[in-house]
Computed example of a mutant assay.
Amino acid sequence: MILVTAATAPVGRSIVEQLTAAGRPVRALTREPAKAGLPEAAELVAGDLNDPVSVRQALTGVSTVFLLAVVPGFTPNFLAAAKEAGVRRIVFQSSASVDDLAGTQPHQVAAFHHDVEQAIRNSGLEFTFLRLELSAANALQWAFDVPAQVKAGDVVRGPYAAAAGAPIHPADFAAIAIEALTDDAHAGRTYTVTGPESLTHEEQITLLGEAIGRPLRYEEMSPEAAREAMGPFAPADVLLDDWARHLDRPAPVTDTILELTGHPGRSFAQWASDHRADFTA
């Protein structure tokens, strides 16, 4: 049995969908199973990582876990329950900002993921770390609620029009995770993950407009205004610093999707087409 945490997040949902489509047993951990909208073939379990009782129940009979960690302080109870349940391997969605050689991590996002990685290593469980480049996380979409902006008009406001990113399609990240969950050859490995192409913020919004059939325009905000406008859960300083570093150079692009899955990564244009409904009223 495979357990998927954060099962209604884009990557977790795609993992569940792909596993059930392949006839693989999968259990989905979500706070509200009745509202999850996940495939009927999946086994849904109510709970979250901060609830030790629900975690123990979710881990019963599980061999591998996809872990997306968004809550602090969960690791001791989670890892103890995983060992008690006989879990063999944890596939952890980490951050490529983690610096293995640094005494102090560069920022809070890196520090959080570094600490979780170290706890997993120290647990003695098998692991695979999938380190997502910050520039590949498609943060513009959620930090500035691009779907809501597009529904309201043809102008998307955000910082650094020329900042480059390499957004990854959630289905591609999910396919990588499934390979790591189901093939023992990936135990003990760390992979850096990005989408297949470097695109500026302005280019991404143009492609999004083409996907929905509207001439969208990117309007650049100052970093100061962007910090004020950013969503409450976005790490503003981390994102703004990363975007500023990619103003005069392409975003990093890896071949991890092709290496692990055997197929090239989906383009941003494909992502925009697949998510057209998110941007229309």
Results as ranks from 00 to 15, higher is better:
L199C: 07
K151S: 07
E220W: 04
A244R: 12
M230S: 00
L216R: 11
G231F: 08
P232I: 12
H246I: 11
G231R: 11
I178E: 05
V238K: 02
Q204V: 09
P250E: 02
P250G: 09
A177H: 00
H186I: 11
A225Y: 02
V155I: 12
V155S: 10
A166S: 15
E228Y: 08
E179S: 09
V155K: 11
V193D: 08
G209R: 00
D248G: 14
H186T: 15
A161W: 11
G158Y: 01
E228C: 05
A185K: 14
Y160I: 08
D248H: 15
Y218M: 02
I212Q: 05
P215C: 10
G209V: 03
A161F: 10
Y218N: 06
A163W: 15
E202F: 14
R157G: 06
I168T: 00
E179P: 00
H246G: 06
A161N: 10
L181M: 13
A166V: 09
L240I: 05
A234Y: 01
I178N: 01
G165K: 10
D183A: 15
A161I: 09
G195P: 01
G195S: 02
A174N: 07
A177V: 07
M230G: 05
H169S: 00
T190E: 07
R157S: 11
A171E: 09
P167V: 04
A161D: 11
E179C: 08
G188E: 03
H169G: 00
